[in-house]
């Protein structure tokens, strides 16, 4: 239970519906773009940007991250840092110019 009680729940519901419509539109956009067959890097960038916007909408509004407590933010920042390490350090292993094997 949080401060949401005091806020008029109709504005809430309206907000959720807007997010829902945006997600639908973005889904259609990302699928349409995929039919264009852009060069791989361009397609990757477009797809990831759209996915990130969708993810931000879900996390921000459905999961109320937009008005969450500091401790949750701290936890998520920590997780993201480790996630990035896990994602990129092994890749560095394979693309290192000084690689021997």
């Amino acid at each position: 239970m949080s401060d949401f009680h005091s806020i008029d729940s109709r504005t809430h519901v309206r907000k959720y519906l807007y997010v829902f419509y945006s997600l639908m539109v973005l889904t259609v956009v990302t699928v349409s773009v995929s039919y264009v067959h852009l060069p791989f890097i361009a397609a990757l960038i477009v797809a990831l940007i759209i996915a990130s916007i969708k993810a931000a909408l879900v996390a921000g509004y459905f999961m109320h991250l937009i008005s969450e407590r500091k401790m949750i933010y701290a936890l998520l920042v920590l997780t993201v840092v480790f996630f990035v390490a896990l994602m990129f350090l092994p890749m560095l292993h394979h693309s290192d110019p000084g690689m021997v094997g």
């Binding site: 990302t30 699928v31 995929s34 791989f40 397609a43 990757l44 797809a47 990831l48 759209i50 996915a51």
Partner: peptide, 8 residues
Amino acid sequence: LFPILYLL
């Protein structure tokens, strides 16, 4: 998952 597996 959707874009990474299906769309790329």
